[in-house]
């Protein structure tokens, strides 16, 4: 891949009727990078992310994810990425083991692979006593850890995380970020949205969307210097406050 970038976005646009949700955005994400994708509610983050994971067709512009075109090769994009969102991650009325088997099947893994991978995952998260309990009965923090691991089952190159830590206690939230760092350290690319601005500081680079456009994109350090503020929270307030 050119310049070691794994996501290429060029003039990507999505319109709904006469409303432009994503307005001509362009950016690249490097392999192994932790990329924070920030923006106010309604700024167009979710719409942009849906195009990148191949479930929504761009109105114009183009994007390549893991070497595949999101318009013409959407199925290949889906096989190369992992996805986890706070709203939907696992089936509450299946056990942990059943969820792993189910998603392993969806990702097209062989039965023998699913068996090994399930066991590895359960060992790694130390969930031996819980593996056969319904996911619905687990604390939220555990669910999210399992969901993250499940999104890695098919060994994707990029993991998309849509507000993965909402509502989780501060210790679990940090343990979750340690998992993210670990995967980035192994060379996985992480594309993450969050409303916690301290988490924005953990990213290698962040972009901030305002009204469909990318208003800023840089390392947290450079953004803070540019806007002459102390924290990413203040950067965000400065950029996003002027709209509406």
């Amino acid at each position: 891949m050119k310049n070691g970038n794994i996501i290429h976005v060029k003039n990507l646009t999505k319109t709904f009727g006469d409303f432009t949700a994503v307005d001509n955005i362009s950016f690249q994400v490097g392999k192994g990078e932790v990329f924070g994708f920030l923006g106010a509610n309604g700024a167009g983050k979710t719409t942009a992310m849906k195009m990148l994971i191949g479930i929504s067709k761009p109105s114009s512009g183009e994007a390549q994810v893991a070497g595949f075109d999101v318009k013409s090769q959407a199925e290949k994009v889906k096989r190369s990425i992992g996805y986890m969102s706070q709203r939907f991650s696992l089936y509450n009325d299946l056990t942990i083991r059943e969820n792993i088997t189910f998603f392993g099947g969806i990702y097209g893994l062989k039965k023998s692979d699913i068996k090994t991978k399930s066991q590895n995952l359960i060992d790694e998260l130390d969930l031996h006593d819980e593996a056969d309990k319904l996911v619905g009965s687990l604390p939220l923090g555990w669910k999210q850890k399992v969901a993250f691991s499940v999104s890695l089952l098919h060994d994707p190159q990029i993991i998309f995380l849509d507000e993965p830590t909402g509502g989780v206690d501060p210790i679990t939230r940090r343990k979750f970020w340690e998992m993210i760092y670990r995967e980035a350290h192994k060379g996985k690319t992480i594309f993450v949205t969050t409303h916690y601005m301290d988490e924005a500081e953990y990213c290698d680079r962040v972009s901030i969307m305002v009204a469909g456009k990318i208003e800023a994109l840089d390392t947290p350090k450079n953004l803070k210097e540019k806007y002459k503020v102390e924290s990413m929270n203040q950067v965000f307030l400065k950029l996003a406050r002027n709209i509406e």
Partner: peptide
Amino acid sequence: DEPTTGVDPVSRK
């Protein structure tokens, strides 16, 4: 009850 959960920092403020 959690009026600001899932809400961006600007709207929360």
